[in-house]
Design a protein around this nucleic acid. Sequence first.
DNA 1: CTGCCTGCAAACTCTTTGCACGAAT
DNA 2: ATTCGTGCAAAGAGTTTGCAGGCAG
Lengths: 155, 155
Amino acid sequence: MSIPSAREKFRKFLAQKGLRVTSQRLAIFDAAFARKEHFTAEQLLDYARAIDDSVSRATVYRTLPIMTGSALLREIDIGSGEKFYMPTLEQNTQIAQVVCMDCDRIFEISAPFMEWYGSTVSSKLGLSPVSQRLQVSARCNTLRDTGICPRRDKN
Amino acid sequence: MSIPSAREKFRKFLAQKGLRVTSQRLAIFDAAFARKEHFTAEQLLDYARAIDDSVSRATVYRTLPIMTGSALLREIDIGSGEKFYMPTLEQNTQIAQVVCMDCDRIFEISAPFMEWYGSTVSSKLGLSPVSQRLQVSARCNTLRDTGICPRRDKN
DNA sequence: CTGCCTGCAAACTCTTTGCACGAAT
DNA sequence: ATTCGTGCAAAGAGTTTGCAGGCAG
């Protein structure tokens, strides 16, 4: 399992930062890393409470920036009011999102040219790129043709 | 001036859609098209009230989707809580944003390859692209080197 | 023990909505 | 005369924060 070792990693990470290792933080971390799809803060609260029901909404919101700030979690804003999160499983920072407007699913695609692009346009403006995000909104062909989205409710 | 003719265009646009031409809608439109930089809904309310002080926040929020839905205005979400708007001055839909994290300014850059990219990755997933957004977050070199951002407070 | 971390609930920000009045067609 | 559009204020959604008590170090 990857969870126990990742948990140890998180424990060390907290100690290293001078942050306390609490049962709530561990539960939130475990909950996040057990997920294979994107999730919201509210969903993370549910998942974490299933592990440790003392976890509160406030602690989830206070723990999320700790995890995103150190790249344990990636934050994805598709402009829908709420933010999505996902465990960082690879080191590739050049990832684009394709958001299906029909099934609301977020697909992640490697986009290696983004880094080059960011540097190119930023330097023209006298700026240094920090991060790039590329998002494609799209509609499902199968749903359009058959009325059924093959991915709907799969998760 | 481009405002009077654009205003006529908006008047016709409303009539065409079966929407009523009200003083508030015209004030909001004029306010938006007098701007050269990006603005928020709240700023637009201020600008519109300077023209017609009967304009309310609710009407601004109800008018914005009318204008964005017909590409009179572009909506830009840089993931900062509030959305930004900008009059559509050109027909190019392939525009990327470079957001300066120091001066909070949004620069717009043509990104013609985005369309190709959207089609390529979408088709692999059985999806049809609807729109793309590419955003680069960057920091100001001059600010870093001299402590002064050359663009700060210019607007 | 010290003070960081917690849950709770209230506050906050941005946006949307129900309602009765008012104005465009 | 019809409706559609409006202002107001309240409601909503998502997130943040002040506080008093609790637990990690």
